[in-house]
Lab assay of single mutants.
Amino acid sequence: MLDDRARMEAAKKEKVEQILAEFQLQEEDLKKVMRRMQKEMDRGLRLETHEEASVKMLPTYVRSTPEGSEVGDFLSLDLGGTNFRVMLVKVGEGEEGQWSVKTKHQMYSIPEDAMTGTAEMLFDYISECISDFLDKHQMKHKKLPLGFTFSFPVRHEDIDKGILLNWTKGFKASGAEGNNVVGLLRDAIKRRGDFEMDVVAMVNDTVATMISCYYEDHQCEVGMIVGTGCNACYMEEMQNVELVEGDEGRMCVNTEWGAFGDSGELDEFLLEYDRLVDESSANPGQQLYEKLIGGKYMGELVRLVLLRLVDENLLFHGEASEQLRTRGAFETRFVSQVESDTGDRKQIYNILSTLGLRPSTTDCDIVRRACESVSTRAAHMCSAGLAGVINRMRESRSEDVMRITVGVDGSVYKLHPSFKERFHASVRRLTPSCEITFIESEEGSGRGAALVSAVACKKACMLGQ
């Protein structure tokens, strides 16, 4: 009897593995994704193909990295998701002549009506938060230079001027797309009239992360975010950046690689679950690469896999709870928690219980395998993109072996128990001629924006502006 049951459990697990095998990517698959990513990057950089390229390769006008001589107080704003952060950054000489960066910050959550109302409502709310922060720190009387981390696709015309191309991540505030974001912020500050600010720089969160990590390690020339969304930036040779005049030196390019796949480059790798996630998203047909990796989508992918296993009578005796059938019910943090389970399955059992399920031991094991399959594919897909960037940098610099540091931020990278190990191992397999160091950014977005502002202020002083 026991043997029969054991055989049935083994057969069930084997069927589960057959279904989950769809998520496995072979090294040849990853090399294919990497080569296609490089081709799209090239198209994004070139003037004649930029418009139709899915990977936009947006110039950021960040050319210099901090040298350690900029000092002063800077205000930093960070808008990239449902939370908005205001930070005071003091850049100065530390002990023994070292450079020191001290920060104080406060988080504000953005109400739904500000995210989806008008641009005026959104930026009025942001300036209200700045006003509140300055009151708390008794700094209303000071006109501070301000660095703005704005983590949406922007076409820069200068370091302090950028046109919002399109909202992502659930934002829909009308009247912002096609307009200068810094102008919208300046107008809102003017409307309030109770404080003055000098907006000197606007950067993407990947750029802010790279600059913040450069402060720790001067070989950091790539910034990457794996959180709600997924994106990367890197220092490109100016001669390859056709959208900006000049051939000397390097400029940081914001790849906006989340949109890779929007022209069909990933079609052969998309599964039924991916198509369902895409169809029910706020932007169907867009940001397809990001939807395979980002935390906004990972939990939902797992939920759809679990429903398939229920329908195949391989999980929960073929019956799903009402909660499990509800879109968004299986949160991405559950994926991390399930994979963090120590082996007694308590954590998995508790999560499934909150979803109205009474799982068996085998159910718990199957749910864990589903989570591992989805998150491992995410790590491997992400590795193909980064390997594409790094191999490109090595080739354009004609280096036999390139040493490089990548600064990384984002909740999936930082909080998932195995993502970074799987990701690092896969990147290294795909970049055999590179020695890569990964560092995690601390308060990256805010500190990085302030350091970019410090560079901009120093330049302005040198130019006598």
Rank of each mutant, 00 (worst) to 15 (best):
L386E: 00
S426W: 07
F23G: 03
K12R: 13
Q337A: 07
E221S: 08
C129G: 05
V203C: 01
M34Q: 09
Q106W: 05
S375P: 03
L20C: 15
V33S: 01
I351P: 08
R369Q: 08
A387R: 00
N83K: 06
I348Y: 04
Y125A: 09
G94Y: 07
I293W: 13
F330I: 06
K414C: 14
R36I: 02
M139E: 08
V305S: 00
L430F: 07
S360M: 04
I189D: 06
T342P: 03
L309E: 00
I439N: 01
G249C: 03
Q219R: 07
C364P: 04
L415M: 04
G388F: 02
E339N: 04
Y125R: 13
E216Q: 06
A456L: 13
Y108M: 02
K31E: 14
L415N: 06
L134E: 03
D132T: 13
G444A: 03
M197P: 15
H105F: 04
L355A: 01
F74H: 03
P284K: 15
S360F: 03
Q98P: 02
V277K: 10
A450Y: 15
R327Q: 14
M57T: 05
L77H: 00
L451A: 12
A384K: 00
D78A: 10
V207S: 02
D187C: 01
D194W: 15
R7N: 15
E95Y: 12
R358I: 03
A208S: 15
I126G: 02
G318C: 07
E120W: 08
A370C: 09
I163R: 11
R394N: 08
G294N: 05
G147C: 07
R63N: 00
E372C: 05
E14M: 14
P66A: 10
A460G: 07
K143R: 06
K291L: 12
G117Q: 04
Q106P: 00
F316W: 04
E177F: 11
I163D: 10
K414R: 13
V55P: 11
Q219N: 15
R368A: 11
L315F: 07
G385Y: 11
M402C: 08
Q286M: 12
T342A: 03
A21R: 13
K458C: 10
R63F: 00
E28D: 12
E399D: 09
Y297S: 10
E248N: 07
E421R: 10
F150Q: 15
